[in-house]
Amino acid sequence: MVIARREQGISYVFTILLDDQFAGVMSLNAVDLTEKTAELDYWIAVPFWNRGIGTIAAQKAIAFAFHELDLQILRSACLASNKGSLKVLEKNGFEKLNDFVFEDGKFKDKTGCRLELHR
């Protein structure tokens, strides 16, 4: 599925490695080359938290989105209580747009935060 979505140009998934160890995933999803937008999503494994890995991986994904795909706007969301995720996004220039409540999924009824980055 990941390969098919990449071939379609709608999703780009990157593995995050540290010293050859799997540390997480960084992805550009809902890529729209006409609108020049995408969603930046990621997950960092707990043993790798608070080491700057997410910040660096996001930096690289953002560079790919803006320079290789010529996108203009990236969006992201995280739990409002997840200070680490907020920090990763804010360190990379994302600005908070608003809070919202997740309507379904594993975070149902939790408060989330939407952010956006313009090229």
Rank of each mutant, 00 (worst) to 15 (best):
F100G: 02
T15M: 10
E7V: 12
L33K: 10
L86D: 03
L71G: 07
R5Y: 12
Y42N: 12
H118E: 15
G105S: 06
T37A: 03
C78D: 03
G105C: 10
Q21W: 04
I53N: 07
S11Q: 14
A58D: 02
Y12S: 03
L33H: 05
Q59I: 03
A38V: 06
R51F: 04
L79W: 13
W43K: 08
L117D: 00
E90H: 03
I56G: 08
D104Q: 15
E90V: 08
V13T: 09
N92F: 06
P47E: 02
R114Q: 10
G93I: 00
Q8W: 09
L33W: 00
V2K: 01
I56L: 15
R114F: 13
E116T: 15
R114M: 11
L28C: 04
A23L: 06
T15H: 09
D99M: 07
P47W: 01
G24K: 01
G84F: 00
W43Q: 10
A65I: 01
N98I: 00
A38M: 02
A45D: 11
G105N: 05
R75K: 13
Q72S: 15
T34I: 14
I44D: 06
L18P: 00
A65S: 04
E39K: 01
I3M: 09
L28F: 01
I3V: 11
N50A: 09
D32V: 06
A23Y: 05
L79Y: 10
G54D: 02
Q21V: 04
I73E: 09
K36L: 15
I53A: 12
N98G: 00
L40A: 00
R51N: 11
R51H: 14
L115Y: 04
S81D: 06
S81L: 06
P47R: 04
D41C: 13
L18C: 08
C78Q: 14
D19F: 05
L89F: 09
R114L: 15
T111G: 00
R119K: 11
T37M: 08
E68R: 13
Q21M: 12
G52Q: 08
A57P: 05
V46L: 14
K110W: 05
G93D: 00
V46C: 04
A57L: 07
I53W: 10
R6D: 12
K60W: 00
F22P: 09
I62V: 13
F66H: 08
W43R: 11
R75Y: 13
T34R: 11
V13Y: 01
D104Y: 15
L33N: 07
T37N: 08
L97C: 13
A57M: 07
I16H: 02
Q21C: 09
L18Q: 11
M26R: 04
